[in-house]
Design a binder for these strands. Structure first.
Lengths: 159, 159
DNA sequence: CCTTATTATCTTAGTATTGAGATATTCAAT
DNA sequence: ATTGAATATCTCAATACTAAGATAATAAGG
């Protein structure tokens, strides 16, 4: 008897889960856009896009990296990393270096000029991100970070 | 005396806040990308990009909208909305309609074919988003949503 | 040595999108 | 009515990417 009384794996429950997920989807996109808009402003005077900054930041904190390593870290296509490193090289901020073990590979490394730029720009950019996030307390930020990390890993793992 | 005894607005505290914000920044970007990759797959067979889908979804749930309304809703430039609606129009999914009150303005509306496509695609896409989010419980999704909403509003308000 | 598969980068063509300015229309105040 | 400011869309040139394939080097097995 119980089965007939139980709601038939109701559409309602499914819809509630879907509605919750859709709201999160929209809010996630809008939050990221809002943060992005706030934090691009301080890079523009230096003619750096977010992606270019991400490359330089990676090289700044980790030292020279193979192009493929940078590519995986900042999540662009192989053509994209070539193009971006070309542009940064033209501006004298980054240089390619040969890899002694593997003649296919190339390192990207900051030039002296690139290091100087990062020393100037990085602290300001970090502060801009901190300010953009200040709508949440630090504890709340940690909470969101933990949840989003789980969300991202679960979604990414399915790929 | 108090002032001299007080720690000089310590760099340490500032750095902790900055580090927390930077982690959130990275995790936010990665989560959105992971979700996006999971949820684009079901649109591709229909030749719809996420942005195109967003336009059609807005028209599907709200009915005909002025181009400017759609533009603000999906956050593209004015040139972008013209281009996108052109493409959807060429495919017979959307049509422009005159606005009786304002001859500058144009409505975008789904055609019968557009409605039919949405009825087919929307439920699948919503389910894909639900599945992509399923790494978190529904309660956790609501929690993240509430926090991200606050984050987005605070950051967006500063613009 | 060869052959085959894999890897790392680069090339090229195409797509998506922005931003500045052009055009047309409306609104408000004279 | 006329002017001027604001608004709605469109045009066009430029940017930022991606995806697919080309090139070159390495690695592993026979």
């Amino acid at each position: 008897m119980k089965t007939t009384l139980t709601a038939p794996r109701s559409t309602k429950a499914t819809d509630a889960a879907t509605a919750t997920a859709l709201k999160l989807y929209v809010v996630l996109a809008r939050a990221q856009r809002a943060i992005g808009e706030q934090t691009q402003a301080d890079l523009e005077p230096h003619g750096l896009s977010i992606t270019e900054f991400a490359i330089m930041e990676a090289l700044h904190t980790k030292g020279p990296l193979l192009l493929g390593e940078v590519q995986r870290k900042i999540l662009v296509s192989s053509g994209g990393i070539t193009f971006l490193v070309d542009k940064l090289t033209d501006r004298g901020l980054v240089e390619r270096q040969l890899c002694p073990n593997d003649r296919r590979a190339r390192y990207a490394a900051l030039t002296r000029k690139g290091v100087a730029l990062m020393k100037e720009v990085f602290p300001r950019h970090a502060a801009a991100i901190r300010d953009a996030m200040s709508g949440l307390s630090q504890a709340e930020q940690k909470e969101v970070t933990a949840l989003l990390k789980r969300l991202g890993l679960a979604a990414g793992g399915k790929a």
